[in-house]
Write a protein that binds this DNA or RNA. Structure first.
Length: 394
DNA sequence: TCTGGGGTCCTAGGACCC
DNA sequence: TCTGGGGTCCTAGGACCC
């Protein structure tokens, strides 16, 4: 989806169309500023001048989405608010409305499934579609169906998207970037050398900043240069699995299927504090946040019908270094108190002599609630020595 | 006054078991 | 004194993605 979070806000505030708008932070300040501005008026009549500006925003956070007008200033996703404010101080800043975003996410995916049912979820604003067997899917190299999908999504949501059509997911993902926004791009196997090889390695989904830097140090900058390397050379530098994968990727080979169903592996909640907190001096505040996070994870698990066995905490120090601690229970749970108690034990195993900027709670090793062993049988499993930490629990 | 939040997957070492 | 090979589970960290 094109500038998904921002485009959704533009539906609400059409007067902002064409202006630099960024979505992010989600901090209350911005919310309040906007509510003040709206007063009794309908949202679409709020004067543009009344919207909060990036330069007035003092929150701690990153940009989730920037409109294309904002991108002209060099502002983009994942950029810190402060840095963005320097690049485009007059950009309008709006908080993320998660309920609204989820609503539109469901709507656009539903629109797609009506046309092509084989859809793989890739997060809130992205999917893979296998339309090999959809009637008319092969017409015009797939362009007809891509157009149909765009039209259907626009009708049902008012939003535009960009579509890449290719023989596999790897290339389709790259192709989807070629013609943004509201574009269609078709890349066939024969186009590999002309359309893919000139691209930076970083364009491959799976090559991030670290791998890119390592490749650059080895004088590999483009996918073509990567393809020119012997597979053995790539394996020597990146290991068996990654090296072989890189070689395949550079040659446009990818046999991963479109996966329509999957079960979650973990659920978590985390929060970055408005200001760094000290484990001792801000103990009460920290404890309250911690409990709240556990309650939220428990709610999430219960609402979605899952239980979990591994309770984990994550914290980030003021120097941005993160640590995690895990603790596996003998039984599955979705209970806030159990999660809180176990997470508390995990927290005790971590050094707390430095200020904290983030605290998180995670529950992993999930199972559908109805598949979990009943509490009555938990006593039997509890006798097994599963973890050296178990004795701390009883 | 840099740097969100929710995820997945991989690696590597140690415990433990057969 | 030296000492297998395979497997699973758990934990911690890190890369990466949306």
């Amino acid at each position: 989806m094109d500038a998904f979070f921002a485009s959704i806000e533009l539906l609400r505030y059409p007067q902002l169309k064409g202006l630099p708008v960024v979505i992010g932070g989600g901090r209350r300040r911005v919310d309040e500023a906007l509510r003040e501005a709206s007063g009794e008026r309908a949202l679409r009549f709020i004067p543009v001048d009344d919207f909060p500006r990036l330069k007035d925003y003092a929150g701690r956070g990153v940009i989730t989405t920037a409109t294309y007008a904002a991108r002209q200033f060099g502002v983009g996703s994942a950029m810190g608010m402060m840095k963005a404010a320097k690049l485009c101080p007059d950009a309008i800043v709006l908080p993320v409305d998660f309920d609204e975003v989820r609503k539109y996410s469901r709507a656009f995916k539903e629109a797609i499934r009506e046309v092509a049912p084989l859809v793989e979820d890739r997060g809130i604003d992205e999917v893979y579609i296998d339309f090999t067997d959809v009637p008319g899917g092969q017409r015009d190299g797939g362009r007809s169906l891509a157009r149909l999908l765009q039209r259907s999504i626009l009708e049902k949501t008012g939003l535009t998207c960009s579509i890449g059509v290719a023989p596999n997911k790897l290339i389709a993902k790259m192709a989807s970037e070629f013609n943004k926004p509201n574009g269609i791009s078709i890349v066939q196997e024969a186009d590999l050398q002309t359309m893919i090889w000139p691209l930076a390695c970083r364009k491959i989904n799976g090559i991030g900043p670290k791998s890119d830097a390592k490749l650059a140090a080895l004088k590999i900058h483009t996918i073509g240069e990567m393809a020119a390397q012997e597979i053995g050379w790539l394996i020597d530098h990146f290991g068996q699995a990654t090296g072989a994968w890189m070689h395949d990727a550079a040659w446009g080979r990818d046999s991963r299927p479109v996966v329509t169903e999957s079960e979650p592996v973990s659920m978590s909640r985390e929060t970055t504090f408005e200001r760094d907190l000290h484990a001792v001096r801000d103990k009460a505040e920290l404890g309250a946040v911690f409990t709240r996070l556990c309650e939220k994870v428990a709610e999430d698990l219960q609402r979605k019908g899952y239980v979990g066995k591994t309770i984990g905490i994550k914290l980030r120090y003021d120097n941005f270094q993160s640590v995690t601690r895990d603790q596996t229970l003998t039984h599955y749970t979705a209970d806030a108190k159990t999660i809180r108690q176990t997470a508390g034990l995990a927290l005790k195993r971590v050094p707390l002599n430095q200020k904290l900027r983030l605290l998180g709670v995670r529950v992993g090793t999930l199972l559908k609630a109805e598949e979990a062993t009943l509490p009555a049988s938990a006593a039997a499993t509890a006798e097994e020595p599963v973890s050296p930490y178990m004795d701390q629990l009883f």
